[in-house]
């Protein structure tokens, strides 16, 4: 065990995978000379050179599309978007090209490519630099959607994403970059598509993604003091969705709260709720609850921003309400 910042876990994963496989390269805005807007690639340019760590012009559609061309011709590009909001600039390349080419080619083509993109509010970055767009991309077929929670996940899942032969969107949470976590000395690959029970419990299942996992664990501590036992599941990816892990837990607890920072409307919570209703409706002891970002653009002022994003308090409140409803 050792302590490490989330951003350094990402750096380690990039470094190790680039050292392991000459076909892995990193491109994006400001990734080379200054080592990334969030310092996730510091030193890689010096170590691997200009061809493998490439500062691009501010042309998201262009360089994401180039990543597709690289992936089709034998390379394994990692494309960094400075903010996940910029996925929308590159939307055609992500949605219509990267994730459909394999299918449209009848399986002739493979597109082993990772797009890394920071999500999350909490820095007064306002409406165009704070979004969590995982639900939007999960809507489309043809790409995996991965959301690491801790530094351990960030490293283990990123390494798996880079080795995956499918396109993967890897959403990093920008509020975690400088947070420290305990991680294994040698982090093993974490399989994509397997949720992780971060805390076992009997009364309420909390399914969470990314940063919300840590908030849920803190909330679960406090709820435990009140005699409410929460099972916290770190989803790790929403495509593929580990439906079995959720179903199994709900069968045990009978209560479900879903916490994901994407906009709530048509969001991750809605999708999981529908899955649970289809499969194990009769096991439920209370209505399913969800916490997301309400459908307003992310505001700038902390006085407006913090009240609308998911929080430990909201998790405690909703989880408690689930058990009260039962009483």
């Amino acid at each position: 065990m050792r302590e490490i910042m989330y951003r350094d876990a990402i750096l380690e994963a990039l470094d190790e995978e680039m050292a392991r496989d000459d076909n892995v390269l990193l491109l994006g805005e400001d990734v080379a000379f200054i080592g990334g807007n969030f310092k996730t690639s510091v030193g890689l340019y010096e170590k691997y050179g200009d061809l493998r760590v490439k500062d691009t012009p501010i042309s998201e559609a262009g360089f994401v599309g180039m990543g597709v061309g690289m992936a089709l011709t034998g390379l394994r590009p990692i494309v960094e978007l400075m903010f996940s909001d910029f996925l929308l600039i590159a939307a055609d390349q992500v949605v219509n090209q990267m994730s459909k080419i394999r299918y449209m080619s009848g399986g002739q083509a493979t597109v082993p490519m990772v797009i890394r993109a920071p999500i999350g509010a909490g820095r007064s970055s306002a409406a165009q630099h704070s979004q969590s767009l995982q639900a939007m991309v999960a809507h489309f077929p043809g790409m995996k959607v991965v959301l690491p929670s801790t530094a351990q996940e960030a490293k283990g899942l990123l390494k798996s994403a880079i080795r995956d032969d499918n396109p993967v969107i890897f959403f990093e949470h920008k509020m975690e970059y400088t947070n420290k976590f305990d991680i294994d000395d040698d982090v093993e690959l974490i399989p994509i598509g397997k949720a992780d029970v971060k805390r076992a419990g009997d009364d309420v299942t909390i399914v969470a993604t990314s940063s919300q996992v840590m908030k849920s664990l803190k909330a679960a501590d406090k709820l435990a003091a009140d005699g409410i036992s929460c099972e916290v599941i770190d989803l790790r990816s929403i495509v593929p969705l580990d439906r079995d892990a959720i179903i199994e837990s709900v069968k045990k607890t009978g209560r479900l709260l879903i916490v994901d920072e994407a906009y709530e409307r048509c969001g991750v919570g809605a999708e999981i709720a529908a899955n649970v209703m289809e499969d194990v409706f009769y096991y439920l002891d209370a209505p399913i609850a969800r916490i997301g970002t309400p459908n307003v653009p992310l505001p700038f002022s902390p006085a407006l921003e913090f009240p609308i994003i998911p929080s430990e308090d909201k998790i405690i409140e909703k989880a408690r309400a689930l058990t009260v409803a039962d009483a």
Binding site: L51, A61, G62, G65, M66, V68, G69, L72, T73
Partner: peptide, 14 residues
């Protein structure tokens, strides 16, 4: 267009 351009980058890379 960017996809072909990426293939050209790939050729240089390899």
């Amino acid at each position: 267009i960017p996809i072909a351009t990426g293939a050209a980058y790939s050729a240089v890379y390899r």
